[in-house]
């Protein structure tokens, strides 16, 4: 179990806390401390709205260790309305109904159960929105 590792990214997984660059106002997610647009330091927290649209998607059948019980599941690149792209699972939708450009919103769900004693890891997934 990697409790500290999961804890370090709690703010990102629970609330989509990224950064805003104080120099060029670029919105950054995941946080990276150096702005990808202007390459200056960017450490000002910024909470994303969780709204976006599907940029690409796929339903996978062979899950990695730790995710076997959830397969098949649908993953996507979601383009957030503030600009950045986020990689996440889609939820509350049939795989056959997913389309590129579909509006989605962030929700919090169980991502995985870790180990035999079952520590639950929660995080963002995205579901269709109007």
């Amino acid at each position: 179990m990697e409790v500290a590792r999961f804890w370090r990214t709690n703010k990102q997984r629970y609330q989509l806390v990224g950064e805003e660059c104080p120099h060029c106002q670029a919105k950054i997610f995941p946080p990276r401390d150096v702005c990808p647009s202007c390459e200056k330091e960017a450490k000002v927290p910024y909470v994303f709205s969780g709204k976006g649209e599907v940029f690409s998607f796929s339903t996978l059948h062979q899950a990695p260790a730790g995710f076997e019980r959830y397969a098949p599941y649908t993953v996507a690149l979601v383009k957030l309305s503030e600009g950045p792209m986020v990689t996440a699972q889609l939820t509350d939708v049939d795989a056959g109904d997913v389309k590129i450009g579909m509006p989605v919103e962030m929700v919090t769900r169980v991502l995985r159960e870790d180990g035999e004693r079952g520590m639950l890891v929660y995080g963002y997934k995205f579901r269709p929105s109007n």
């Binding site: 995941p30 796929s58 990689t87 996440a88 991502l111």
Partner: peptide, 14 residues
């Protein structure tokens, strides 16, 4: 990206 791809259940194939 371990924290932002693998953490979400993504595989190389996906």
């Amino acid at each position: 990206d371990g924290d932002y791809e693998a953490m979400q259940g993504l595989t190389t194939v996906s």
